[in-house]
Amino acid sequence: MSKQYQFKLVLLGESAVGKSSLVLRFVKDQFDDYRESTIGAAFLTQTVTLDDQTTVKFEIWDTAGQERYKSLAPMYYRNANCAVVVYDITQSSSLEKARTWIRELQRQADPNIVIALCGNKTDLAARRQVSQEEAKKYAEEEGLMWAETSAKTGEGVTEVFTAIAKKLPLTASPAARPGAGARASPGARQGVDLNKQTTAQGQNEACNC
């Protein structure tokens, strides 16, 4: 029997490290060279197939990185099953910021949260300021997943999310995780959606007026 799991994932990290680009690459396999800064929080979904029997649907909250909106971040990472904390390998200050986010998550988020530290922009490796060793060592100390990606080339992106999907505790009952909100999922156009969303769509037919 096939199983579909649903998890809430939140992206955190300093402004301009490429959070939205990472999500765009993962969800739509696209890349924009000039993306406007996210002012708000975007909700997207994408489904990852682990094997013939199992799919994991991510409900992704892509948050604003600007300091001004920091106080709102807890609203988006509450009840999250996993967090991807992104830094820019060409900006060592962004790793510092990532550390701050990780400390905050460890202190305030769900204690079972799976955290992945993700160094983005490997396509700009020539301007690298954060060495792989440094980041990896920190991740190991804190017990985090770690990977480097390039949203621009797509390198490592799917792998990060697949790795998270595999690491998430699949013992919990399918699609009934705390993060699985009541919302219908209009995104995920090419997601392999085994349990088709007939219930959510069917509700639209009745007019509540």
Binding site: A41, F43, W61, L72, M75, Y76, R78, G181, A182, R183, A184, A200, Q203, N204, C207, N208, C209
Partner: peptide
């Protein structure tokens, strides 16, 4: 509220 969109489908109709 922020991050908890509520019942969007019902809200659309209203």
């Amino acid at each position: 509220s922020a991050g908890l969109p509520g019942d969007d489908d019902a809200d659309v109709q209203i």
